[in-house]
């Protein structure tokens, strides 16, 4: 197990290095630049800005400078705002992670419960209703859902303010973010639960007279969750880093929009920062979900 973890961490490190190289050279190959604007700055100003951000140096040298800074915990400053990238990323991640964490918890809990109900009460009205809702929710794009929530709760009912400087209300963004993963987890749980319920060991347990609740929770659900765990790892990484659409509609200062605006502005340090951040998070989540497999299913061994 220990050896496995070390191996995985080394592999993860290698993956991230590759990602930084690809991102760095790709973003520089894309046309456009960080100091483009409708009104062009004078050559002197442009030269001063390029010098400030080391853009006047050859690309490989720029990359080395960046990596050196990164090793020392310096992710650079934004070419657009001049703000510290690390501060921006971690500050907005805190917001996104709060909302994303709540959304993920809601999605996982409700998804598993609904999925199990649908599987256990197969072909009843409850099953059909759950299948209908989860199909609908996987089909509705998040911007439609978010706009709908905004319209109903903020404009029609007037229960929640669209925006205020006081405590941010996270209810609507959490709902908007959680619907898709919730629906997906419901369907995954249902399918996998149905499969597990048909397995020999479940039948054996039932035959032996084990209490039905115990069969479901101890034997069936535990095994049925393996595909769910596979999905939840990367899902967490993406939901915790926020969604551009949801943040934009509910005026939330999260990380989600930074990915897109960074690229639109050709804000090179921001593109590198967000990419590396997401890569590290993704790799970590995958590792954790692999380790959780082992705890859930003793049949899985690490080699």
């Amino acid at each position: 197990m220990g050896r496995y973890v070390v191996k995985r961490v080394l592999l993860a490190f290698f993956t991230i290095v590759i990602i930084t190289i690809i991102t760095f050279f790709t973003m520089n190959a894309v046309p456009g630049g960080p100091f483009n604007s409708e009104k062009a700055s004078s050559p002197e100003v442009k030269a001063a800005l390029e010098k400030r951000y080391n853009l006047d140096k050859p690309l490989p040298e720029q990359y080395i400078i960046y990596v050196k800074g990164l090793v020392h915990g310096d992710m650079g400053i934004s070419t657009k705002t001049g703000r510290d990238i690390a501060e921006t990323i971690f500050g907005s991640f805190k917001v996104s992670a709060t909302i994303g964490g709540m959304a993920a918890a809601l999605a996982i809990l409700t998804g598993i419960v609904l999925g199990s109900i649908a599987a256990l009460y197969r072909n009843t009205w409850a099953d059909r209703f759950i299948v209908f809702i989860s199909t609908l929710m996987t089909a509705v794009p998040s911007f439609v859902l978010a706009t709908l929530l905004l319209y109903v709760f903020c404009i029609k009912l007037g229960w929640i303010q669209v925006w205020s400087t006081e405590n941010s209300n996270y209810l609507l963004p959490v709902l908007a973010l959680s619907m898709y993963p919730m629906a997906y987890i419901t369907r995954l749980t249902k399918t996998s639960m149905l499969e597990v319920l048909g397995q020999d060991y479940v039948r054996t347990a039932k035959a032996k007279g084990v209490a039905p609740t115990k069969v479901i929770f101890k034997h069936a659900l535990r095994n049925a969750l393996i595909p769910v765990i596979t999905y939840v790892g990367p899902m967490l990484a993406s939901i915790l880093t926020g969604s551009m659409v949801v943040e934009s509609i509910f005026t939330v200062g999260g990380l989600g929009s930074k990915f897109v605006t960074g690229i639109n502005n050709r804000d090179y340090p921001m593109i590198m920062g967000t990419t590396i951040f997401l890569a590290v998070l993704m790799v970590t989540m995958n590792l954790i979900s692999d380790l959780i497999y082992k705890m859930v299913d003793p049949r899985i061994t690490f080699d």
Binding site: T147, Y151, I155, Q161, V162, W163, I249, T251
Partner: peptide, 21 residues
């Protein structure tokens, strides 16, 4: 002066119509 920091037309127009700005 309290500024809503948004460039989302839908959000901005909704905030105005809801009386928030």
């Amino acid at each position: 002066l309290h500024f809503m920091l948004s460039a989302d037309d839908t959000a901005i127009f909704s905030a105005y119509n809801a009386g928030d700005v």
